[in-house]
Design a protein around this nucleic acid. Structure first.
Length: 574
RNA sequence: CGGGGUGUGGCGUAGUCUGGCAACGCGCGUGCUUUGGGAGCACGAGAUCGCCGGUUCAAAUCCGGCCACCCCGACCA
């Protein structure tokens, strides 16, 4: 569990004393730039899969990130508190999530045998606090936030700090009288998020997103475009439309329509994939239909049909069938419904819920499975040859599809989610009985929103957005130190150490933050480390710089160098 | 959970196929020299080769089991 907020002022530091080690070689198992650089530069160390320590340098960056978030949350009237990391299971049973959430929640029993959980989020605790404290509409609205450890036993952590199992999150909760109040709070958080990411040096795009397991009516994710991103965004550069692919409702291409022809089975040995099938028959993927199978949380077998050149969008499908927790179906489950995996067709199937994508339903004479191994059926027409249970949009938007707003071709980009905002509604307050007495004399459930930012992920994302081939290039707003002071050839001129020590002493006296490389290392080592660590300014004191009139100042971001007087440097690092 | 990969001083690796003294670079310690772009010389410390079991005169190496970590997928507020 995390401690109270870090102190906001730090002593200036000698590198010779810092708990730190840079690595000359790239760690073997780090692939993303942020992971590689944060390890090499001594900001973080890994303890286990998805479990990291922040070393002193990394902790300072995290503290600065937190402080920016804190200032912007406070500025919209959001109040900081601190809720526990360990919860009694009871409140999670009250909300229904104790059973609804799977093995990603950490669970244990205390010494008395009571079920306990490790916090993966804090809606339940907020709702519990609200039901204890809020009595009247006069006490609302209120917004609350904290920075607290979350534990989510992810199936797979990845990318260093990008996806971890234990992390610090800023999570805020708005508590309003009604939906109109929630809209106001939501907009206030939206604005705060825009200011936070701007100050962190992250150019984000806010996209509409799925409400997922949190429930609720509206949600946005703040996304950083990145080639290693886990989400795909659908973006229109013409009108600014932006959506997560999970929920993007683009206009689909026009279907090919023709007069229905009689069906005809054709032998297609060894063509269990669409690509094989199209090649074998000399047609395109768009001339085929493909069936994908899922088992819903309630046990139904869901048969999803899309055109062969489309992909099934699991989020849309899950929402369409109220399936909650789809998983890929097993072959025996598919066979039990009378279909042949690899050559499956809903024609003649029993006991499966068939959902057909709009485009496949409108297209004529498609090649589909024949429910016989090694055979497909030509000229299948949805409606004539089988009757689907549901026809709706269950396909992923594709590159170049028409924008739903303006019709221009959309672009697909991968991105990392750095923050999200949700309109939760009354799901948790109703479950936990968090109500207020309204002006009308009646009890009403409090209307909630939730707003999250992962501190460590943002730290890594800042590095993703601000690095070069030499190392990290911190934005000044989050840099662990404002400047990196380097001495060179100190043994050749006693004034080198005198000037550096005086500058260091001055920076301590006035509360400036300078990392002072006082090590007896060769110039190459010191410069390389300075560039790797990434402070905005590198200050070099050497016989050469003194002869030129002072201290050499290098801007890390641009590489621009100049020699400035000691007085000018004092002003600079202030 | 499925697929792929990797575990050998602090870091990066070779050695494993074909069993036979634990190897290389960097880093680390001491001394001397050196000091504007990852210095030189000398001496030195540091490894139960992921773990357990088996085969063998002999196992980093072969066999079996397990564990950890990474990548892809599934999954994920």
């Amino acid at each position: 569990m995390r401690s109270l907020p870090a102190p906001l002022s730090f002593a200036t530091m000698r590198l010779s004393q810092l708990f730190f080690a840079s690595l000359r070689d790239d760690p073997a198992d780090a692939e993303m730039p942020s992971h590689r650089l944060l390890l090499r530069a001594g900001y973080v160390r890994q303890l286990g899969s998805g479990i990291y320590s922040l070393l002193p340098l990394g902790f300072r960056v995290a503290s600065r990130i937190e402080q920016i978030i804190r200032e912007e949350q406070n500025a919209i009237g959001c109040q900081e508190l601190l809720m526990p990391f360990v919860h009694p299971a009871d409140i999670w049973r009250e909300s229904g999530r104790y059973d609804a959430v799977g093995p990603e929640m950490g669970r244990f029993k205390d010494r008395a045998g009571r079920d306990m959980v490790l916090a993966m989020t804090h809606e339940e605790v907020i709702a519990d606090l609200l039901r204890n404290i809020i009595r009247s509409y006069r006490q609302l609205p209120v917004q609350l936030y904290h920075f607290q450890t979350k534990f989510r036993d992810e199936p797979r952590s990845r990318g260093g700090l990008i996806r971890v199992r234990e992390f610090t999150m800023k999570d805020a909760y708005s508590c309003d009288l009604d939906d109109a109040g929630l809209d106001v709070s939501y907009q206030a958080q939206y604005g705060a998020y825009e200011r936070i990411f701007k100050r962190l040096g992250l150019e984000t795009v806010a996209v509409s997103s799925d409400v997922g397991m949190m429930g609720g009516s509206e949600a946005h994710e703040f996304m950083l475009l990145n080639p290693a991103g886990e989400d795909t965004l659908v973006l229109c550069h013409q009108c600014g439309y932006a959506s997560n692919q999970q929920v993007a409702q683009v206009r689909r291409p026009e279907p090919r329509v023709a007069d229905p022809l009689p069906t005809e089975d054709v032998a297609t040995p060894g063509t269990a994939t669409i690509a094989d099938l199209a090649a074998y028959l000399g047609i395109t993927a768009a001339d085929t239909a493909k069936a994908i199978f899922f088992t819903a949380g309630d046990g139904r077998l869901i048969t999803a049909i899309v055109r062969g050149d489309d992909e099934v969008n699991e989020t849309k499908l899950a929402n369409a069938v109220n399936g909650g927790g789809l998983r890929p179906a097993r072959e025996d489950e598919i066979r039990a419904a009378g279909m042949e995996p690899g050559y499956a067709s809903p024609i003649g199937s029993v006991g499966t819920y068939v959902v057909v994508d709009d485009l496949a339903a409108q297209s004529s004479n498609l090649v589909a499975g024949a429910n016989r191994a090694g055979y497909h059926r030509r000229n299948v027409n949805v409606g004539r040859d089988f009757r689907p249970d549901l026809v709706t949009d269950i396909a992923n938007a594709r590159e170049g599809d028409p924008c739903p707003v303006c019709g221009s071709p959309v672009n697909l980009r991968t991105a990392i989610e750095v923050g999200n905002i949700f309109k939760l509604g009354t799901k948790y307050t109703e479950a936990l009985g968090a109500r207020y007495l309204g002006e009308d004399g009646l009890e009403h459930p409090i209307v909630m929103g939730s707003y999250g930012i992962g501190v460590g992920r943002n730290l890594a994302c800042i590095v993703e957005a601000h690095h070069d081939d030499k190392g990290i290039v911190w934005p000044a707003s989050v840099a662990p130190y404002a400047a990196h002071l380097v001495t060179v050839s100190a043994n050749r001129d006693p004034r080198v150490n005198e000037v550096a020590e005086a500058l260091h002493a001055h920076s301590i006296a006035v509360g400036h933050e300078v990392l002072y490389d006082d090590r007896d290392e060769s110039p190459g080592v010191k410069f390389t480390d300075a560039e790797l660590l990434g402070m905005p300014w590198i200050l070099t004191v050497s016989p050469r710089s003194l002869a030129a009139g002072g201290i050499e100042v290098t801007e890390r971001a641009t590489g621009e160098r100049s020699v400035r007087s000691v007085e000018a440097v004092r002003a600079l690092i202030g």
